[in-house]
Amino acid sequence: MRVLSGQSLLDIAVQVDGSVETVFEWALANDKSITDRLTPGEILVAPGSALREKDIANYFYGIQKKLATGITAQNHELIVPDDGIGAMIIGSTFIVS
């Protein structure tokens, strides 16, 4: 399985196996943590899980959909607005008095 930009192990588990339950098997088979950031183009070994939900996996395969729910440089502005306390600078946009 070749990793696409923005994909996580959870995305791949659902896309290939049709179940989030297989994410732990994907992590073990590829010597990763379930929260590791994946590198686009990286090749992952499919664990061949007994927990595979064939109907869901076949659905994603049939419609040729690739799941990629990670925040990328392209979609960061759509998801995380540049306002609020996280974007404030003390003494500049956040005045303490």
Rank of each mutant, 00 (worst) to 15 (best):
S92K: 14
I34E: 06
I79N: 06
I34R: 09
P47F: 07
S97E: 13
K66I: 10
S8A: 05
A50P: 01
G41P: 01
H76M: 00
P81E: 07
K32A: 06
Y59V: 05
T39L: 13
I89E: 12
G62R: 10
L67I: 15
L9I: 03
I89N: 09
I85E: 13
T35I: 15
P40I: 07
P40M: 09
S19W: 02
M88E: 14
G48L: 01
G70W: 03
L44S: 02
D31R: 15
G86P: 06
L78Y: 11
S8R: 10
T69D: 06
V96P: 02
Q64T: 06
E21R: 14
D31C: 10
I56C: 10
K32Q: 08
I12M: 06
W26V: 01
S33G: 10
V80L: 10
T69I: 01
S33L: 14
T39D: 00
V16A: 03
V20E: 15
T72G: 02
E21I: 10
I56H: 03
I79W: 02
W26N: 07
I89M: 11
I34N: 00
D83R: 14
A13P: 02
L28N: 12
T22W: 13
V80R: 07
V96I: 12
N58R: 11
I43K: 11
F60H: 03
D36T: 04
I89P: 01
S92M: 11
W26L: 10
A29N: 00
A27P: 06
A73K: 07
S49L: 09
N30A: 05
G70T: 08
I89Q: 13
D82T: 11
F60K: 00
I43H: 11
K32Y: 06
G41R: 09
M88P: 07
S19H: 06
R52V: 05
E25M: 11
S19F: 06
G84K: 05
F94I: 11
F60C: 03
A87M: 14
D82Q: 12
V23E: 08
S8D: 04
I79A: 09
G41W: 10
V96T: 08
F24M: 14
Q15C: 12
L67N: 03
S33R: 14
R52T: 11
